[in-house]
């Protein structure tokens, strides 16, 4: 090892803190890069999504007409559960290896850094789920006219799901068996998103305008974007130091 720090302190006391944008971008790319190196974990929520959808015709009936009426709700519930499943790992690894602690100690505002992490989570789960949904829609006999709305509602709604779910993940990351608890505290909060997300697809199936539903989903996302990062940051501080 070298005996001297490379950087003279005189310069360092000017305390360069860098830009917030760079820190957020670095956090996002770090999470994406890491996930892409562990692809098997990426597949998990998608496989779960497909599997759950496969269970419904087996459990209910292969009747196409019946499945088509249930399809909007089924796809949405399955996507919601797949998101929930992936949330437990959102902060878990960072917590275990100590980098969460470091994230909390940066001079940058924590809620925004956390937002970068949640966006990463959405890009790796919510967005793929939305892209995959029409395939499962076909299997459930969903009219193809509703595919666009299905994808749009899932893409929009799953971002809210990631944000709200991250609150629960932040609160339970320090607990040894936080997974079940996470579902208990997060699922009730998911209900509004589910109602309007599935509602959008249902009205598209019925030939009604679905834009109002999507607008409400958008409004929920705006509110979640505004408030959830604060709660996530508070939850993380508590979990790391508790």
């Amino acid at each position: 090892m070298r005996r001297e720090p490379l950087i003279p302190l005189a310069e360092s006391n000017a305390a360069s803190t860098g830009s917030l944008g760079a820190a957020m971008a670095a956090t996002l790319t770090r999470d994406l890069r890491q996930a892409l190196r562990r692809r098997s974990e990426l597949i998990n929520p998608l496989a779960f999504f497909a599997l759950v959808i496969t269970l419904f015709p087996l459990g209910i009936s292969p009747d196409k007409a019946l499945l088509a009426t249930l399809a909007p709700g089924l796809v949405w519930v399955a996507a919601l559960l797949a998101t929930l499943l992936s949330l437990d790992g959102l902060f878990r690894q960072d917590f275990d290896d100590g980098s969460l602690e470091q994230l909390l100690l940066t001079p940058q505002p924590l809620p925004l850094l956390v937002l970068a992490k949640v966006v990463g989570h959405w890009l790796l789960t919510g967005l793929p789920l939305a892209l995959m949904a029409p395939l499962l829609g076909v299997m459930l006999g969903l009219p193809s006219a509703a595919f666009g709305v299905l994808m749009a509602s899932l893409a929009l709604g799953s971002m809210s799901l990631s944000l709200i779910g991250a609150i629960g993940a932040a609160l339970t990351v320090g607990l040894r068996r936080g997974g079940v608890l996470l579902s208990l505290i997060i699922l009730p909060l998911y209900i509004p998103v589910l109602i309007f997300g599935a509602g959008a697809v249902q009205s598209a199936v019925a030939g009604l305008p679905s834009l109002p539903h999507l607008a409400i989903l958008g409004a929920m996302l705006a509110l979640a974007l505004l408030l959830a990062p604060l709660a996530i940051a508070a939850g993380l501080r508590l979990s790391v130091n508790g």
Binding site: I7, S12, G18, A25, T27
Partner: peptide
């Protein structure tokens, strides 16, 4: 990542 968080000198 740490450089980006702390600012690059």
């Amino acid at each position: 990542w740490y450089q980006a968080l702390g600012g690059v000198v």
